[in-house]
Amino acid sequence: MLCSNCSSKEAAFHYKYIKNGSKNEIHLCTDCAKKLGYINDGELSFNPANIFGELFSLPQFIRHRAPETSCPNCGTDYNSLSRTGFVGCDKCYDFFAKQIDAILSKIQPSTIHKGKLGGSEGKKIERDNTIKGLKEDLQKAILNENYEEAAVLRDKIKALEGEGGEK
């Protein structure tokens, strides 16, 4: 089959997709596929298998400077992570911290979890976050010379810190 763009070379890139409810196909030679931005240095620049489409395709600078390394714990490499959006273990979140943060900030409205956590560790995180917020409020209250409120906040912080048995 010939490339549907230049009609001179053999098509090497075949892509089926659904747009507005109807099926479409694209057949391109490698040069045209590159030129039209479907592939990037011989590698797919998006993941057609994923229903979220191009969400995982990262800004170019991150792609190119990505380290050619794998997670020491599970062996997941950055290429497969950026192509599929899958990590292999908890450690990947530390190992690819920067790249994961970039992907998450692209596909989610914020990168800070707001929902429930549960469990003893979850409760500790929730408590730490509450204390952090209260300490900020305390600073503001002191700056505004609102000492009554500051006293209440200080007591709350003390009580919460006491619960944790540390700090």
Binding site: F52, F56, Y93, I100, K114, L117
Partner: peptide, 26 residues
Amino acid sequence: SEKLDYAIHEKYGHLTSCLTNVGTGM
């Protein structure tokens, strides 16, 4: 969550295999 040791992250919340589920996992 009280019986098992869930994989959670102080910033991202629940950690999941696919990045499209991180956070609430819901």
